[in-house]
Amino acid sequence: MFWNLPLIAVVALILIALAIIVFKKNLIKVFLGIVILESAVNLFLITLGYREGGIAPIYTNAPQATMVLPTPQALTLTSIVIGVATSALLLSFAIVIWKKYGSIDIDRIRRLRE
């Protein structure tokens, strides 16, 4: 039961990140929330692939034991790249909005409504 701690942590992190996204008014803060959310999901994927007492799935001279599952690591690599691409694009949006609106407060970025 105690060993489920990483999964519990994943849930907690997802909730904290969602709270940051929903309750914070500053765009950059929201993006930080998205970064944390991405990291939490990555942690979830990695956690799925862990085997107790396993070693990294790389053959070296080191003594061999059971290896942890490689697929989640591959997926997480892809997901990390997606994360950095996403945050770069989001930040560039925020900068342009700051230039044009003079504010990155979410309550004031609402010229489009109705």
């Binding site: 996204i21 929903v22 309750f23 008014k25 929201v30 979410i106 309550d107 970025i109 609402r110 010229r111 489009l112 409504r113 109705e114």
Partner: peptide, 12 residues
Amino acid sequence: VPLHSGNLHDYI
């Protein structure tokens, strides 16, 4: 109409 408030938080 007020539902379409333009506020990202509401949308999320």
